[in-house]
Design a protein around this nucleic acid. Structure first.
Lengths: 223, 223
DNA sequence: GGTCTTTAATGTACAATGAGTGTCAAGACA
DNA sequence: TGTCTTGACACTCATTGTACATTAAAGACC
């Protein structure tokens, strides 16, 4: 977690203009550090939060937003994805479900049991369906495009659930899947993006070593 | 994500007028932060969502104290246990390492690299070594006895690292191992006991289904 | 080394904004 | 019917945002 913010990031965090930050630091009411011969301002997150009266929890657990789920049956696969997406269907969020058609139907039916309005979520585009591309590169491009356009349209949080094992990606050698996941974690599920992801894998079709690799490139299991 | 919304964004999010937001914050029913000399309002997303009854993700994560670690090499096994125990070697804590003799030596050597005083920790009993019993029941009794006596002696936190795969327990059918872990989680790694546990397994010797079972009866992977 | 572009700081002037304080009408509800 | 809440509008005023020019450091490039 970057603890030192430049003036643009600080202005974005506090939703104020850079001018105000300069005024406040000049007036001495807001601490800031100076760096380099140009004496650029650097702000500590804790100082910024203290300035608006937020108690800075000194030790925050690191954010976890890239989970993997190992399902052991078709039912547990559907249940896992449904629970994840149902919790994500919030007013200003976008949910994406990437899975084969049959699985999509099962997940929708399952969500409907706790959220009868799923169908309308589908119509309004708050919940979108797709299938995995067959190449890691095109799939990554798909993610980036979808998420960027959603953020541009004002969505504040994106929830992604993908059934990797059953899709086209799942037929790649496992090493390539891990590379894909690693890249996904680095460039998409990064802290910078408000994206939370659940990657599902069929525990019956992977080895223990595969599972260890999955845990390595995810923030943990979902449950 | 600690993002703050200004009053316009907050009004847009909740689909109410800015007037109402001002009234609600003045009445104290909706929390808001104040910033700058004009005391402008800034709203935390979680507060806004909570105000309309949406369960926010800012609920405290449940405590996690029963981890499993999948190692893929002898080196990663030793490193995992060493990192875990080194972080646990605090003044009022007791650390337990349950592993075969050879692994014990490797872990001690590894800890010594970041904490030269390990040997004295061993002498004073702050770090204790043992090997797995061959039956789940006797092993559970061992844990209970050790931990209870430690707590009686004033220890405030117990850290347990165990290499299950390589020990006598690891030779049981995997179903029995899972039963043992489940019982351990229920009666020892319970919230009531100040015990944090790392159970290590050899990823090379288990199946994907086994790994899924392990994740099910642990709070998550350690890393 | 030198050159060019980018970026941030500083300073100034002026327009825009939000807070605080009112009033008032429309709709919900018992 | 009366009461309560919401949204809209008006007004003042201090703060904030924006736009501009200037300077200097940092980074990219040859």
């Amino acid at each position: 977690m970057t603890d030192l913010l430049d003036i643009r990031e600080a202005a974005e965090l506090l939703r104020v203009s850079e001018t105000s930050l300069r005024r406040w630091t000049n007036a001495g009411v807001l601490p800031c550090l100076r760096i380099g011969g140009r004496r650029e301002r650097r702000f500590r997150r804790a100082d910024l939060l203290a300035f608006v009266g937020v108690a800075s929890h000194s030790i925050l657990p690191p954010p976890r937003n890239h989970f993997c789920g190992l399902y052991t049956s078709d039912l547990s696969r559907v249940r896992g994805a449904a629970a994840f997406l149902a919790s994500g269907l919030q007013p200003d969020a976008l949910c994406l479900l990437i899975a084969e058609k049959g699985v999509q139907r099962g997940v929708i039916d399952q969500i409907e049991r706790v959220r009868p309005s799923v169908r309308s979520d589908l119509r309004t585009g708050r919940l979108m369906l797709a299938e995995y591309r067959s190449s890691a590169a095109t799939q990554l491009d798909f993610w980036r495009a979808r998420i960027r356009s959603a953020l541009r349209e004002g969505v504040s949080q994106v929830y992604v659930a993908g059934d990797v094992s059953a899709g086209a990606l799942g037929r790649l050698p496992f090493g390539e899947i891990l590379e894909y996941e690693t890249e996904y974690g680095r460039s998409i599920a990064d802290r910078a993006f408000p994206v939370t992801t659940l990657c599902q894998y069929d525990a019956r079709r992977i080895s223990g070593l595969d599972a260890a690799g999955l845990l390595q490139c995810h923030d943990g299991p979902s449950h």
